[in-house]
Design a protein around this nucleic acid. Structure first.
Length: 646
RNA sequence: GCCAGUGUAGCUCAGCGGUAGAGCAACCGAUUCGUAAUCGGUAGGUCGUCGGUUCAAAUCCGACCUCUGGCUCCA
């Protein structure tokens, strides 16, 4: 067969190994891997028939930064070899250590083991040392191909490997990779020798992980590592972790007295402290005002609902596992509200609706309760009680796309205002192989097509995630990047043909007949709890003026300036600012420090000069201050607040 | 829910069989000071809870609870 390498054409054979081909082409150079038609391959594997007419691209060690999965995957094998050696040192036979899977991850690698005893995190440095040693030994990797039957004999001691093999077709060929005395079943690709692995890796943690992610299967011990091509990249990653830790909303939430959780109240239930409540109320009134402009009507519905309501909607028993158990009252059962939509639907159904009043856009800041697994609960991002900025649009089919676009517009406005600029879409469609969905194929096809059209019209980057749909309809998730580049899934818009049908909703059309409305579910924030958690981390607690719980603090230089400080504070308060003066007996610089630590949005200092001139000294970025007259101060702060900028 | 770790004053942490400690914060007093820490004093803890071992437990053992890192799930 013929292959193309740059501007050269070369004759090869499907059985020829990548490495052999490259050393024929460039005998003096050392390569670490190659790409065939863009697909990453290792030097040890035969090119295969599908390489014919393919474009060959050799990769040098210097290019490993671009293909970290190469050394990360090889490192997971080294980890397995090191773990075996570690246990061999205490007399454990290597075949007693069974292994699950060990792939590369986004930042490193892991491997799952079934070990004779619990591994402590204190043992990781010793295992890591062994791994560094294996790299230094520069062991060559060997690849072998064998039939499924041969592999089953070779790995007869390991039930997990056998299970992997049993999932392959009868006559399948599999490959193994070995270095030193260690052999693992693996598809590759791998580096050709361990000496090419950068030493910039670290074992970071251990955890439990179910075999094949299934909670009914045994739990294995997972060891995680991080690995980068160069030491500076590893350092940069570890610095990012530090930065994330510094911004942790649980830590900042406590320090800034925004929220608390209390075991006596119940886990996963958030207590909003006064400062956090201010933040929350600002977000709510911002969205409420935007929704009014867009013709939403706000409603309020109870925190519990009759179980029949959720049986009709289909939420019960479908989501019974993640709901609080029903409450029995007399002869009826009630559920803590896991969803607002059934309540809103019953509001729609209070009286006959005309095509003239559609679309009806109903919104509610509705508090929901879901029974999340206790091990899942986490700060504000995973809780058992939360408030959704929920909304449901009931419209005619011909209005659907416009409504969908308008929701998209609102959601993007919300994100831009919160300075979450980098947004992309993910369209969740149904999994054709699953039967969990309600409703027919025709409506599903229709709604999936409408979402895609709307998304394409907006023109932002989007992807399609098959199988990500809700049980009642396809959905659109918005994924945003925060200030330190982390992705968050926020806001969700869903088209729903099924609930209107289950509740038998209709409207009277122009033709006098009854028609079925379409529903759009949407929540730009998603949950206020989660959104605020993300915002705390995005801003690292330094909220823009409009959101800052404490907006202005006025620091008098000595006690004799306190009267003037209070006068300035009152002036600001009259314009609706959350302002106060610091009457403590500390030195001015200590008060400045306290204001910084409390992350007050604006710090003003007043002394003799300011009092005489009726000005304030506004403390800006990096401690640089500038004088401002009181009218200018009010104008500047009002403008900043109005623009919702920092 | 499962695996592993963790828990000492409001916060950060020391103490690891022999009478509970520090810094910061709080409170009191002095100080009145120009953009990230003024000085002195006072108060604050059934060492997560319950049980066990011991003459003696914050310290050793067990159970439970919280929280943390994962697994799994997310309408």
């Amino acid at each position: 067969m013929r292959l193309i390498a740059g501007d050269r054409s070369i004759e090869s054979d499907p059985a020829e190994r990548g490495g052999e081909l490259l050393s024929r082409l460039w005998p003096e150079q050392e390569w670490v891997a190659l790409r065939v038609n863009g697909e990453l391959r290792d030097l040890l594997s035969p090119l295969g028939e599908q390489a014919a007419e393919g474009q060959i691209e050799p990769l040098k060690a210097e290019q490993l930064s671009e293909f970290p999965e190469l050394f990360r995957h090889t490192l997971s094998h080294l980890l397995a070899q090191a773990v075996r050696a570690h246990f061999a040192a205490e007399g454990v036979e290597e075949k007693e250590i069974h292994m699950g899977v060990g792939p590369a991850t986004q930042t490193g690698f892991y491997y799952d083991f079934d070990l004779p005893r619990a591994l402590s995190e204190d043992e990781l440095p010793a295992i890591e040392q062994r791994m560094h040693g294996l790299v230094s030994q520069d062991l060559p990797l060997r690849r072998a191909e064998l039939s499924r039957q041969q592999a089953e004999q070779a790995f007869a001691y390991d039930p997990f490997k056998l299970e992997i093999l049993s999932g392959l077709p009868e006559g399948a060929q599999v490959s193994t990779y070995s270095q030193g005395d260690f052999t693992d079943l693996c598809r590759g690709p791998h580096l050709p020798r361990t000496g090419l692995i950068p030493q910039s890796f670290r074992l970071t943690s251990t955890s439990g992980a179910y075999w094949r992610g299934d909670e009914r299967r045994p739990m294995l011990q997972r060891i995680y590592g991080v690995a980068f091509a160069t030491e500076p990249e590893l350092e940069a990653y570890l610095t990012r972790l530090e930065e994330a830790k510094r911004r942790d909303h649980r830590k900042l939430g406590k320090e800034l007295e925004l929220f608390a959780t209390d075991p006596m109240v119940g886990k996963g239930l958030v207590l909003w402290l006064p400062k956090g409540t201010l933040l929350r109320e600002e977000l709510i009134s911002f969205l409420r005002a935007e929704q009014r402009k867009r013709g939403y009507q706000e409603v309020v519905t109870p925190h519990i609902g009759n179980l029949e309501l959720y049986k009709t909607s289909g939420h019960y028993p479908y989501y019974a596992d993640s709901q609080f158990a029903p409450i029995r009252v007399d002869d009826e059962e009630y559920l803590l509200k896991p969803m607002n939509c059934p309540h809103h639907i019953r509001i729609y159904a209070q009286r006959p609706r005309s095509y003239r009043e559609l679309p009806i856009r109903m919104s509610e800041f509705g508090t929901l309760y879901r029974y999340e697994l206790s091990g899942e609960l986490n700060g504000l991002t995973r809780v058992r009680g939360f408030t959704q900025d929920d909304g449901h649009i009931f419209c005619r089919q011909d209005q659907l796309k416009e409504e969908f676009l308008s929701v998209l517009d609102l959601t993007l406005l919300v994100f831009r205002t919160l300075t979450l600029q980098d947004v992309r879409f993910r369209v969740g469609t149904r999994d054709p192989g699953s039967d969990k969905y309600v409703g027919g194929d025709a409506v599903w096809d229709q709604s999936e097509r409408q979402i895609l059209e709307a998304v394409q019209e907006v023109g932002l980057e989007y992807s399609v995630a098959q199988g990500d749909a809700a049980f009642y309809g396809p959905k659109l998730d918005l994924i945003v990047k925060d200030a330190i580049g982390r992705d968050w899934q926020l806001g969700t818009i869903q088209v729903d043909y099924n609930l209107p049908e289950r509740f038998n909703l209709h409207y009277v059309g122009q033709d006098g007949g009854l028609h079925r409305p379409v529903m759009v579910h949407r929540a730009p924030f998603g949950s206020l709890e989660r959104m605020i958690g993300i915002l705390i981390e995005h801003f690292a607690g330094d909220f823009p003026l409009w959101l800052a719980p404490e907006q202005v603090r006025i620091i008098p230089i000595t006690d004799r300036h306190l009267g003037y400080a209070e006068e300035v504070a009152r002036l600001l308060q009259e314009s609706g600012f959350r302002a106060g003066s610091d009457a403590g007996s500390e030195r001015m610089s200590a008060k400045v420090r306290s204001a910084e630590l409390a992350k007050v949005a604006v710090t003003l200092v007043v002394g003799d000069r300011e009092e005489a001139e009726r000005t304030v000294s506004l403390r800006g970025e990096g401690g640089k201050s500038r004088p401002l007259s009181l009218p200018d101060l009010l104008a500047e702060l009002s403008e900043r607040r109005g623009r919702r900028s920092a």
